[in-house]
Deep mutational scan, measured.
Amino acid sequence: APTVVALYDYTANRSDELTIHRGDIIRVFFKDNEDWWYGSIGKGQEGYFPANHVASE
């Protein structure tokens, strides 16, 4: 899976979202739409995150 790096912190608001912190490396499983992508950090943490909070490595 491609990876991206978090540019900003984001705290999940729902159970299907992913909390990310600046500098996190996120594996992107799919891009649901322009605004929300689905991916994982490490083991067990996965969910939707805002695409405008990340950039290609």
Rank of each mutant, 00 (worst) to 15 (best):
residue 1 A to I: 12
residue 2 P to E: 15
residue 2 P to A: 07
residue 2 P to Y: 11
residue 2 P to C: 14
residue 2 P to R: 15
residue 2 P to H: 15
residue 3 T to P: 04
residue 3 T to H: 07
residue 3 T to V: 11
residue 4 V to A: 07
residue 4 V to I: 01
residue 4 V to D: 03
residue 4 V to C: 08
residue 4 V to K: 00
residue 4 V to M: 07
residue 5 V to P: 04
residue 5 V to S: 05
residue 5 V to E: 10
residue 5 V to K: 14
residue 5 V to N: 04
residue 5 V to H: 06
residue 6 A to G: 00
residue 6 A to T: 08
residue 6 A to P: 03
residue 7 L to N: 06
residue 7 L to F: 03
residue 7 L to R: 09
residue 7 L to C: 08
residue 7 L to P: 02
residue 8 Y to R: 14
residue 8 Y to V: 09
residue 8 Y to E: 11
residue 8 Y to Q: 13
residue 9 D to G: 07
residue 9 D to T: 07
residue 9 D to K: 04
residue 9 D to E: 08
residue 10 Y to Q: 00
residue 10 Y to D: 02
residue 10 Y to H: 10
residue 10 Y to S: 00
residue 10 Y to M: 04
residue 11 T to Q: 10
residue 11 T to H: 14
residue 12 A to Y: 13
residue 12 A to W: 00
residue 12 A to H: 01
residue 12 A to P: 10
residue 13 N to G: 10
residue 13 N to K: 15
residue 13 N to Y: 06
residue 14 R to N: 09
residue 14 R to Q: 13
residue 14 R to P: 01
residue 14 R to C: 14
residue 14 R to T: 13
residue 14 R to V: 06
residue 14 R to Y: 12
residue 14 R to D: 14
residue 14 R to L: 09
residue 15 S to W: 08
residue 15 S to C: 08
residue 16 D to K: 10
residue 16 D to L: 05
residue 16 D to M: 07
residue 16 D to R: 09
residue 16 D to C: 09
residue 16 D to H: 10
residue 16 D to A: 09
residue 17 E to I: 05
residue 17 E to Q: 14
residue 17 E to R: 08
residue 17 E to K: 02
residue 18 L to Y: 07
residue 18 L to R: 01
residue 18 L to T: 02
residue 18 L to W: 03
residue 19 T to I: 04
residue 19 T to E: 04
residue 19 T to F: 04
residue 19 T to R: 00
residue 19 T to C: 04
residue 20 I to V: 10
residue 20 I to G: 03
residue 21 H to D: 01
residue 21 H to W: 04
residue 21 H to E: 10
residue 22 R to N: 07
residue 22 R to S: 12
residue 22 R to G: 04
residue 22 R to T: 15
residue 22 R to P: 08
residue 22 R to Y: 01
residue 23 G to N: 06
residue 23 G to A: 02
residue 23 G to D: 04
residue 23 G to H: 01
residue 23 G to L: 00
residue 23 G to S: 01
residue 24 D to S: 05
residue 24 D to R: 00
residue 24 D to Q: 11
residue 25 I to S: 09
residue 25 I to W: 06
residue 25 I to T: 13
residue 25 I to L: 13
residue 26 I to T: 05
residue 26 I to Q: 01
residue 26 I to K: 04
residue 26 I to P: 06
residue 26 I to S: 00
residue 26 I to C: 04
residue 27 R to H: 13
residue 27 R to W: 09
residue 27 R to D: 14
residue 27 R to Y: 14
residue 27 R to K: 14
residue 27 R to M: 07
residue 27 R to C: 08
residue 28 V to T: 05
residue 28 V to M: 02
residue 29 F to N: 11
residue 29 F to Q: 15
residue 29 F to M: 14
residue 30 F to N: 15
residue 30 F to M: 14
residue 30 F to K: 14
residue 30 F to Y: 14
residue 31 K to H: 13
residue 31 K to S: 10
residue 32 D to V: 12
residue 32 D to M: 13
residue 32 D to A: 13
residue 32 D to R: 15
residue 33 N to Y: 09
residue 33 N to W: 04
residue 33 N to S: 13
residue 33 N to Q: 10
residue 33 N to H: 05
residue 34 E to D: 12
residue 34 E to A: 14
residue 34 E to C: 10
residue 34 E to K: 13
residue 34 E to W: 02
residue 35 D to L: 08
residue 35 D to Y: 10
residue 35 D to G: 09
residue 35 D to W: 07
residue 35 D to S: 11
residue 36 W to H: 04
residue 36 W to F: 08
residue 36 W to S: 00
residue 36 W to M: 10
residue 36 W to P: 00
residue 36 W to N: 02
residue 37 W to K: 01
residue 37 W to M: 05
residue 37 W to Y: 12
residue 37 W to Q: 04
residue 37 W to N: 04
residue 38 Y to I: 04
residue 38 Y to E: 03
residue 38 Y to M: 00
residue 38 Y to V: 01
residue 39 G to A: 00
residue 39 G to Q: 01
residue 39 G to H: 05
residue 39 G to R: 02
residue 40 S to E: 12
residue 40 S to K: 15
residue 40 S to T: 10
residue 40 S to Q: 14
residue 40 S to A: 15
residue 40 S to N: 03
residue 40 S to G: 13
residue 41 I to M: 12
residue 41 I to K: 14
residue 42 G to P: 06
residue 42 G to Q: 09
residue 42 G to N: 07
residue 42 G to F: 11
residue 42 G to M: 06
residue 42 G to L: 08
residue 42 G to Y: 13
residue 43 K to D: 12
residue 43 K to N: 09
residue 43 K to M: 08
residue 43 K to Q: 11
residue 43 K to V: 13
residue 43 K to S: 13
residue 44 G to T: 11
residue 44 G to N: 11
residue 44 G to H: 05
residue 44 G to K: 10
residue 44 G to D: 14
residue 45 Q to D: 11
residue 45 Q to C: 12
residue 45 Q to I: 10
residue 45 Q to V: 15
residue 45 Q to W: 05
residue 46 E to A: 08
residue 46 E to N: 04
residue 46 E to H: 12
residue 46 E to S: 10
residue 46 E to R: 08
residue 47 G to V: 01
residue 47 G to Q: 00
residue 47 G to P: 00
residue 47 G to K: 00
residue 48 Y to F: 08
residue 48 Y to R: 09
residue 48 Y to M: 03
residue 48 Y to A: 03
residue 48 Y to S: 02
residue 49 F to H: 04
residue 49 F to W: 00
residue 49 F to D: 06
residue 49 F to N: 15
residue 49 F to S: 03
residue 50 P to T: 01
residue 50 P to A: 03
residue 50 P to G: 00
residue 50 P to D: 07
residue 50 P to Q: 04
residue 50 P to C: 03
residue 50 P to E: 07
residue 51 A to E: 03
residue 51 A to T: 10
residue 51 A to C: 07
residue 51 A to P: 03
residue 51 A to R: 13
residue 51 A to L: 02
residue 52 N to E: 06
residue 52 N to Y: 02
residue 52 N to T: 15
residue 52 N to K: 13
residue 53 H to A: 15
residue 53 H to Q: 06
residue 53 H to K: 11
residue 53 H to D: 01
residue 54 V to F: 03
residue 54 V to G: 03
residue 54 V to R: 01
residue 54 V to S: 02
residue 55 A to T: 15
residue 55 A to L: 13
residue 55 A to C: 13
residue 55 A to R: 14
residue 55 A to Y: 11
residue 56 S to F: 11
residue 56 S to R: 15
residue 56 S to H: 14
residue 56 S to P: 11
residue 56 S to K: 11
residue 56 S to M: 14
residue 57 E to S: 08
residue 57 E to R: 13
residue 57 E to D: 10
